[in-house]
Design a binder for these strands. Structure first.
Lengths: 202, 202
DNA sequence: CTTTTGAGCTTACAACTGTACGCTAATTTA
DNA sequence: TAAATTAGCGTACAGTTGTAAGCTCAAAAG
C-alpha cells in the first residue's frame, strides 16, 4: 500500500517524537539528549531531523505540549471516576499515582523541564501546571462554595504538594508508593480542612 | 609569602568548586557542565582537574554537600530570629526567600539535581531535604506537643510546599516574590491549622 | 507525460568532549 | 644534601556534536 507524502511525513514526525519519549528515563533527560541520538533512535539521518523541526528545542516544546495533554486527559478520567463514587481526593490521587506508574517518562519530562535551563520550557510546563490548578480551583468553588481567592490558594498548595510527592514516588517501588499515597491523602486533608477553618475566621 | 603544598592544593580545589558554582545560572545546569569548562573557569588545565576529583560527578556531590550545608546554616539563622520575636512561619519564610535571592544558583543546583539524571545526586539532595524536614518535625513536637507522626506529616508537607514555591520564585522579580511569600504563608497556615484539627478528631 | 517539489540520504567539517601519557619544577621527606 | 613525591601543564587521540551542501528519487502538480 502506497502512502501519500503527507502521511509519511506525519509518520516520521511521530517516530521522532516517540523516539525522544522512549529515550527519556531516570538516567537520561531531554536536555542531555542530542539531535543525532534522537535521529538514530527514530531511524533517520541526523540531517533529516530538520525537515520536521527547526531545532531540538522545537521538539522539546512539542514533547511538553503532548505531556500536558496527557495530563489533562488524566484529569478528565479522574472526574469520571469521582462521579461514579469514591472521595474526590482519594480518587484523584489514585489516578495520579497510576499516571506516574504508567507514564513515568512523561512525568519525568515535566518535572525536569519545570526546573530546567530553558526559559521557554520552564514557562511551558508552568502553564500546564497552572492549567491543572485552575481546573481544581473551579471544581472547588463549584462543589464547596469557597470563595475563589481562597479556593485558588488551596488548589495551588494541593497541586504543588501532589507534584512534589509524585517526584518522590518515581524512585520508589509499588508498596512504598502506596504508603506515600496514604500520607499524601492525609496531608491534602490538612490543606482542605485548614482552608475551611481559615475561611470561617477571616 | 610561600605556601605549603597542601594549602595551595586546597586553594585550587576551592577555585574549582567556586568556578562550578559560578557557572550555574538559569541557563546553565551542572549536568550540562563539562569538565573542560569548569577547568577553564578555575584557571587550570583540563587534566589538572583529576588531581582534585576522580571525575565530574565527585565534584557534583561536593557541590550538593556544600549547598546542603548552606541551607542548614540558614535554618539556624532563622531560629535565632524567631527567638528574638516574630512568628515562626513568617520568619522562616522570610529567611528562606532571602536565601533564594542571595544564593539563587545554590538553590537551583538543589532543585535540578533533585529531579536530575544521577541516582547519587538525587539521593544526596533528598537526604538534605529530609534533614530539613526532620529538624522541622522535632521543632514542631517540642513547641506544639503534636505527636511525632503527625508532626512529621505536617513538616513534610510544609517543606515540599516551600521548596515548590521557591522554585517558582526564582523566575519572578522582587515584588512578585513578596506576593508569593504572602500567599505561601497563608498556605502554610492551612497546613498547621488543618493538622491540628486532624489531631483533635483522630 | 513533463516539471516541480521535498523527504531523506551521504559526505564533510569545525568545534568540542573526556582522558591517557609523560614532562617539569617545586615542595616534602629521609 | 639527595631522593621521592606530586600539582599542574602540554600534547595527543578518538569519539561526539550540530549543521552546511548537494544529491536522489518518488509523489504531486501542471
Amino acid at each position: 500500500m502506497t502512502q501519500s507524502r503527507q502521511q509519511q511525513k506525519l509518520k516520521t514526525r511521530r517516530a521522532i517524537i516517540d523516539a525522544a519519549f522512549g529515550l527519556l528515563d531516570e538516567q537520561h533527560s531531554f536536555s542531555s539528549m542530542s539531535l543525532r541520538e534522537v535521529a538514530r533512535a527514530a531511524g533517520i539521518a541526523p540531517t533529516s531531523f530538520y525537515r520536521h523541526f527547526k531545532d531540538i528545542d522545537e521538539l522539546g516544546l512539542t514533547l511538553v505540549d503532548e505531556a500536558g495533554l496527557t495530563l489533562r486527559q488524566l484529569m478528565r478520567q479522574a472526574r469520571v471516576r469521582i462521579a461514579s463514587g469514591g472521595g474526590v481526593i482519594s480518587t484523584s490521587i489514585d489516578t495520579f499515582m497510576e499516571f506516574i506508574s504508567a507514564n513515568s517518562n512523561i512525568f519525568r519530562l515535566l518535572l525536569r523541564e519545570h526546573t530546567g535551563t530553558s526559559n521557554a520550557f520552564r514557562a511551558a510546563v508552568f502553564r500546564e501546571i497552572q492549567h491543572f490548578t485552575e481546573e481544581l480551583t473551579d471544581y472547588t468553588v463549584a462543589t464547596t462554595g469557597l470563595n475563589k481567592k481562597l479556593a485558588n490558594l488551596q488548589a495551588e498548595a494541593m497541586v504543588k504538594l501532589v507534584f512534589s510527592t509524585g517526584a518522590e514516588a518515581l524512585d520508589l517501588d509499588t508498596t512504598q508508593r502506596e504508603q506515600l499515597a496514604v500520607r499524601l491523602k492525609i496531608q491534602l486533608r490538612f490543606i482542605t480542612n485548614g482552608s475551611l477553618e481559615y475561611a470561617k475566621n477571616n
